[in-house]
Design a protein around this nucleic acid. Structure first.
Lengths: 191, 191
DNA sequence: AGTACCCTACCTATCACTAGGTAGGTCGCC
DNA sequence: GGCGACCTACCTAGTGATAGGTAGGGTACT
């Protein structure tokens, strides 16, 4: 496999599990099977690695959101899919999604990475706002007063639910925290 | 001032601003005005410092919640007060509350500190559940279906809102994320 | 075909620095 | 005299980063 990709994979897992500052080039080197110094060939500074991580992550996430939005399902189903994204990222309760992890350890990040992170948040909120508007129109989401505010609330809810679930290492907490949100969605049984 | 308290104060601010792993005994020593090694007299290991922090924090928070609960105000007003707690902790958008900060950097914490953190979360949810029950009865909180789930959602919302607001260094994001929540509360104008 | 050159992708060895932590001494106060 | 509170001085084990070397592949000119 491509070494650069292997490094990104290993770093992403470490960052999501332990935080970006909590893993070292030595950890990475051991896992990927090259020497510590060789990592600097691919990522001269650790900030470059952080940027590489968020760049790839944002791109993947963006594609996923586009795919969800493109489906002919009602808006409620799209929000359910969105929720699943965050739920799945928890794995067995030991991982955070990268944006939550980086948000939490914000301080050590470069200005560039921070900008990318904020852009990711803005994109997510814009996407959600659109879905809430659709859900208001097609009636699949209950009580939509202000799509923009609902979008901001949803993002915060997902990130917060992930945080508390990971703290307790218990995915059930994520489900509890998002259950009321889920109850607003009209689930049309399709089989 | 008491040196131990000064150390806790300095450590708390540092932990909330930069994360528990991101400040060192050297930073603390410089700020408090004693030598690095002297800190070990008060907190032999950094884990002891972490425990001291969360212990004091949990106790303070518990008292605050008790005071809020004891007031004769409607349940909605108590939730507003709860929201203010998290909002105020943000300061100018640069700080998290201690539990969010520690949740985020969970990995480096001792089992003991982790237990204390989870207990804090449980207590918060129990407190919130009670408030939601009251709010359902006195009618000051709209659409209360399941108090336990609402409680979990509220905690997650607050922590998540704080996280995204801090990431963007903008308190307005906290307000946006919690606005829909606030809209469910009946605000009785008293003057 | 041979040689000169640059490239990628690693390596060894070491850098300067910081982390948390320890040993042992000093000083004032009850 | 003992103890609380602090000091200087040091240690070990890391950290990210750098310097300089090397094996092997491609390209280009003669």
């Amino acid at each position: 496999m491509d070494t650069r990709t292997a490094l990104l994979d290993s770093a992403e897992r470490a960052a999501r599990q332990r935080g970006f500052d909590a893993f070292s080039y030595a950890d990475l080197a051991k896992e990927v099977g090259i020497r510590k110094a060789s990592i600097h060939y691919h990522f001269p500074m650790k900030a470059d690695l952080a940027f590489g991580l968020i760049e790839r992550y944002a791109q993947r996430f963006s594609e996923t959101l586009s795919n969800i939005a493109a489906s002919p399902d009602p808006a409620a189903a799209k929000l359910t899919a969105y929720r699943e994204l965050y739920r799945d990222a928890l794995a067995d309760g030991s991982q955070l999604c990268l944006c939550v992890s980086l948000s939490a350890g914000r301080d050590s990040l470069s200005e560039q990475v921070l900008g990318e992170l904020n852009r990711f948040h803005e994109d997510s909120i814009a996407w959600l706002e659109r879905i809430f508007e659709d859900g208001h129109e097609d009636g699949s989401i209950a009580n939509v007063d202000n799509p923009a505010l609902e979008a901001a609330a949803t993002l915060a809810l997902m990130e917060g639910a992930q945080l508390v679930a990971r703290a307790a290492k218990d995915v059930a907490l994520f489900d509890q925290a998002t259950a009321s949100f889920d109850a607003r969605l009209t689930h049309t049984q399709s089989h």
